[in-house]
Write a protein that binds this DNA or RNA. Structure first.
Lengths: 145, 145
DNA sequence: TCTTCCTGGTCTAAAATAGAGACCAAGCCT
DNA sequence: AGGCTTGGTCTCTATTTTAGACCAGGAAGA
């Protein structure tokens, strides 16, 4: 364990708490601190991708790596550990000749899939608009020099 | 512009495409590449927080900074620029004596609030389970030495 | 007038984080 | 023996983030 996981989730940053009590109207209570920690976790580069891969079926370590070619072993290990620690995935070791390890979603992990799916859907439907906005912005910037 | 924004969204990583055609059943088509770029953007440390702040009402640069005390000026500037480029927020400069700049959500930005809200809701309802899972994991790890 | 403060940034240097790839044990196959 | 596999870990380097100094330029105070 060299420097892996000393993610002080939400300790470095002050609780934004009461500031957002009325997030667009009031249905949104305080307690944003832990939420932020979770958002940070989801937000990292690989977490969502790994969840999507595991959503299909349980995968072994190297299988995940093949599904997400540009993740490094180190980051895969670290992200899987964090996910396991948060109760989103299970890790099962089989004492086969070369040992094999299978990762799969827990119920909690499954439940996360729903909001993630919404986000993915939003991303799909919005990508055209975003691409247009980018072009416009870049063009305007270029014309200003 | 020193090193800001050369985010080659989705160029470094190969398109995961057809691999996820059947994300939990089949309703999930290819085209994950651009989606991934968007997810990366949402996933960064500050984007979601800024969106939530702006969801309340438009804010000035320094106001945002006060709402998110631990963001550095540089990251705030950079994140706001990226958000503006993606068409999620508008930037309006007022030629006041000390110049003031107001940032607000666009319609596209507003539309993102919905899936983000779902995620926040999930996070709120799940935080207890996650906390328990962490305790259990840490305890098990400690007992193993 | 001279000093100080405010704004929204930019710049540099240092700290934290991610990535590449060598390495490991242990057992199989040839 | 030699080489291959597995799931990792370790070290070294590259990238990213942070802190904080700095800037222009008007305003208000003295």
């Amino acid at each position: 364990m060299t420097g892996l996981r000393e993610n002080n989730l939400g300790s470095a940053q002050e609780c934004l708490g009461q500031r957002f009590q009325t997030w667009r109207g009031g249905e949104f209570d305080l307690a944003l601190c832990p939420v932020r920690g979770i958002l940070d976790r989801l937000g990292d580069k690989w977490t969502t991708l790994i969840l999507i891969v595991l959503a299909q079926r349980p995968h072994r370590f190297s299988e995940i790596r093949r599904s997400i070619p540009d993740i490094s072993k180190r980051m895969l290990t670290q992200t899987l550990r964090d996910l396991e620690r948060d109760g989103m995935i299970t890790r099962r070791v089989f004492p086969t000749k070369p040992p094999s390890v299978e990762y799969g979603l827990t119920e909690l992990g499954e439940s996360l899939l729903e909001p993630v799916a919404q986000l993915v859907t939003w991303a799909e439907t919005s990508q055209t608009k975003i691409a247009m906005a980018r072009s416009a912005f870049d063009a305007a910037e270029a014309s200003r020099g």
